[in-house]
Amino acid sequence: MTAQRVAVLRDLLEFVGIEGERLNLVWVSSAEGPRFANEMTEFTEKIRSLGPLNWNYQWAVPDSELRAANPSK
């Protein structure tokens, strides 16, 4: 079920414009320490290579700046 849900979520992320690669699902047992470390390192590297989300920053103006620009409001 989880595998299928994650597949659906990945498609959904693509739909809202977020790269599907940013979502990863692996099963690691508590006895597989090195594998866990490996998976984590690989995934971190992948995210790093994708870089930050390509938000359009014009939507991300902090409230304080907005208020400064429109003191009447």
């Binding site: 739909f15 414009g17 977020i18 938000w55 359009n56 939507w59």
Partner: peptide, 16 residues
């Protein structure tokens, strides 16, 4: 109409 847009456009529009 949404699927016709590029991923970057979709990201911007959905965020908005």
């Amino acid at each position: 109409e949404w699927e016709a847009k590029s991923p970057l456009q979709r990201l911007d529009l959905w965020r908005a």
